[in-house]
Amino acid sequence: MSEFAEAFFNIEIAVAALPILWMGLQQTLLLSALVVPLGLGAGFGFALLSTRREPWLRWPLVVLIDIFRAIPPLVLLILLYAGLPFAGLDLGAWGAVSIAFMLNTGAYYAEILRAGIEAVPAGQREAGRALGLRPWQIWLFIVLPQAVRNVLPDLVGNTLEVVKLTSVASVVAMPELLFQARQAQSITFNATPIVVAAMAYFVLLWPFVRLLSRLENRQLAGRR
């Protein structure tokens, strides 16, 4: 038992690794603060375009969204990070991570938002027109608030997934929480830094998981 504790909850190593894990956590938060808005922005753009009626616009967009939902984000990341330099285009870790995760999470956000927009009754838009509002005012003040409310649990859930996804950036040597933990682990030959990092992820994300559970249950209760 003490051997187990030695390998997983070694206090000495945990204390020694804390400074670099803290740097990693900050990087994880920074990366999330970058990728979530990028994905949301792309998602809003895709969603607005895919609710248009023109088939030449709608179908290519649906295919594009499904392609980015079908390719694992890590594959997209490696393609941009290790593949593009062969074409003389080196995006660096930040560039590759931003673009790969924006495309992946943007596709998911787009699907969620599209469902939310389509659930807003047409009468709402017509009422806006009847009040003399301009098209952008109808979108911004009537359709979007209701669309977002319709799919709020899914939006929160996807945002949670995006934050968890940032751990994948460790593969291209971005010094976020998981990367730092692995560095510390390989120096100390001890799993404690990874356990501490996992605990940090849990403490950071648990409130959101609880919130999500609540929102989902409320949505199911409302449907009954």
Binding site: K164, L165, S170, L178, Q185, A197, W206
Partner: peptide, 14 residues
């Protein structure tokens, strides 16, 4: 709450 990659690394290296 835990990212899948963190779990994989924990099980494989830990």
């Amino acid at each position: 709450a835990l990212p899948p990659l963190v779990l994989i690394v924990l099980i494989y290296f830990g």
